[in-house]
Amino acid sequence: MLRARDAMDRAYAQPLDVPALARIAHVSPSHFSRTFRATFGETPHRYLQRRRVERAMFLLRETGNSATDICFMVGFESPGTFSRTFHRIVGRSPREYRKGAVAADVPTCFTKAWTRPSA
């Protein structure tokens, strides 16, 4: 399970599916889904979405790229899905998040702790 999760952390922007992740973990897809959820408390799909949103949060704070560009950079296939998923996890739209981003003089470790998605 750790190998599969590490692969998701490394290649979050790539199209990853359960069968491919199950092969990395050397188990069947159904066993992988059940075990991943039991081990990490969320489904593989939800974990991957949360990782993508975490990366998008960083890019929104630290770059001037448009939300649409960031959407595709982190692995979402549509701006609508990106915006909807971002809002569901963070509680604000990407645009609202960027406007309210923490000032640059706050240490990164505090910013990460304060803005880490909870769901």
Results as ranks from 00 to 15, higher is better:
D9G: 05
S28V: 05
R5T: 11
F86R: 02
A119G: 00
E96L: 08
F58V: 05
G41V: 10
I24S: 03
M1I: 02
G64L: 02
T63A: 07
D9A: 09
E62Y: 04
P15Y: 03
G100H: 12
Y47V: 09
D6Y: 00
F76T: 05
M73I: 06
P79K: 13
I89A: 10
A20L: 08
G64Y: 04
Y97R: 05
R116G: 10
F72S: 13
L16P: 03
Y97H: 12
P44V: 02
W114I: 07
H26L: 02
H87P: 04
P107R: 14
E54W: 07
K99I: 00
A13F: 04
A38S: 12
S30T: 14
D69F: 07
S118N: 02
D17S: 08
S66A: 05
V90S: 02
M73W: 05
V106R: 15
A13E: 05
R3P: 15
S78K: 11
A4F: 10
H45L: 14
I89S: 03
F110M: 13
F36H: 12
R46A: 15
F72A: 12
G41I: 08
I89F: 14
T39I: 00
L21S: 09
S33Q: 13
L60P: 06
H31E: 06
S118H: 10
F110S: 13
T85S: 04
I70R: 03
T115I: 07
K99E: 11
D17F: 04
T108E: 13
